[in-house]
Amino acid sequence: MTGDVASAEPPAVELDAVSRTYTRGEPVYALDDVSLSLARGSYTAVMGPSGSGKSTLLNLVGCLDTPTAGTVSVAGEDVSTLATRQRARVRGQEVGFVFQTFNLMPRLTAEENVALPLVFQEVAREERLERARDLLDRVGLGDRTDHRPSELSGGQRQRVAIARALVTDPAIVLADEPTGNVDTETGERIMGLLDDLHAAGNTILLVTHQRAIADRAERIVRLRDGEIEGIDQVDVEGAA
């Protein structure tokens, strides 16, 4: 637990003075003293040129990587010092990934792909397939549950991936360039889906290099050379 805000729920994600250094001959600061808090239900976009530390930030929040310094908390739990096994648990329960390249399991059907995170949470087969079908319904693929990824279009695959990210009801959905591999029209539909998720109360962290996409979020964190260059509020509903 970082911060001891009395009764309030902890933020979905909190980064406190986080640095991530890679040693390749000399130390490279992929992320340098970054502090950021994502409230529950918020929608944040991270922008920046390649090499700015976007992916590192995502990997740290997603418990795929550990910080060199500082603390990362997900749903109130300090994940920066967790053992490998515990990080796998946090990934399975609190984090939902949506990747640019979809990253579906090629031999599994749509519903099995969506249900996959629940396999590692020991949820019974019937129950997890039922939840998977519910979520596929929600993303408009209720009639494609038995299709393999190779039988689906790019947009459909990404919607399967989004359904998979939601199946464990995570504290945070991490979307890494979710529209990078689909055409503009399909991208628009995917962004619409993310809007819906946000409206339904999900916390979203979106990484993109397109301003138009980033503008769909509530605020934009601009990264450059591993540091936060600035945070812009994109206020549509007039709240800040």
């Binding site: 997603g62 795929l64 490998t84 096994r85 796998a88 648990r89 990934r91 399975g92 329960q93 990934f97 990253n103 579906l104 399991m105 996959l116 995170p117 590692f120 949470q121 998979r164 464990t168």
Partner: peptide, 12 residues
């Protein structure tokens, strides 16, 4: 990588 990203432990 995918399985680990969605919560598979090394043991899984």
């Amino acid at each position: 990588g995918i399985m680990k990203a969605v919560g598979a432990t090394n043991r899984d």
